[in-house]
Design a protein around this nucleic acid. Sequence first.
DNA 1: CTTTGTTTGACATTATTTGTCAAATATAAA
DNA 2: TTTATATTTGACAAATAATGTCAAACAAAG
Lengths: 101, 101
Amino acid sequence: MQTLGQLIKSKREAKGLLLRQVAAFLDIDQAILSKIEKGNRKPNRENIGKLAEILEVDREQLMVQFLSEKIAYEIADEECASQALRVAEKKVRYIKAHTKK
Amino acid sequence: MQTLGQLIKSKREAKGLLLRQVAAFLDIDQAILSKIEKGNRKPNRENIGKLAEILEVDREQLMVQFLSEKIAYEIADEECASQALRVAEKKVRYIKAHTKK
DNA sequence: CTTTGTTTGACATTATTTGTCAAATATAAA
DNA sequence: TTTATATTTGACAAATAATGTCAAACAAAG
């Protein structure tokens, strides 16, 4: 199963970009980007948007990878993880329906 | 839709317990428990276990409420929230299957 | 070997979480 | 109402976690 970091790295290399080029575009140190690709640091949402832009991948696709990975590692050690996800889906629908925006 | 805090408070009152009694059992300040019930602070997993014990509710049930609420608020503002949950479920299964323990 | 790119670790800085306490507010009893 | 008890709130401190910076180590290519 592909991790977010692996996805980022493969896309970056496919475009022939260097860490420092992408890192400069994201306005972060290249050490951090290296760690993100290695899975030792988590990107933030701003990073995801910028990465989608420079790597020319769909932002939603990248965001799904980002969020799902975060969630999965938060709960994978719990017996009731799957059940929690199902309830979470209900709550998300509830929150979205009741958020005045 | 019932929040985790509301569930805790209703169970506590049903048992006729005071904040300070429950808080002492959890080994936290009663101010924190009050905030947890009001939704202004998040309990941790140890709190959940203790709460299940003293309130005599199923630990899994409480944990599901705790995890699902945490997840829901993390992602509810994203367009792709539901998709992320579905991918997260796959990842959880993958992680569980590949975790040597 | 030299150059360029990547990875790693130590450390500082910043942000977030968590805890403590006392005052304010509410609730109930007399 | 007054008194006693319970709850809630906010200011602040302490602890913890996230993030950034930098340089050295390492890897790959020429």
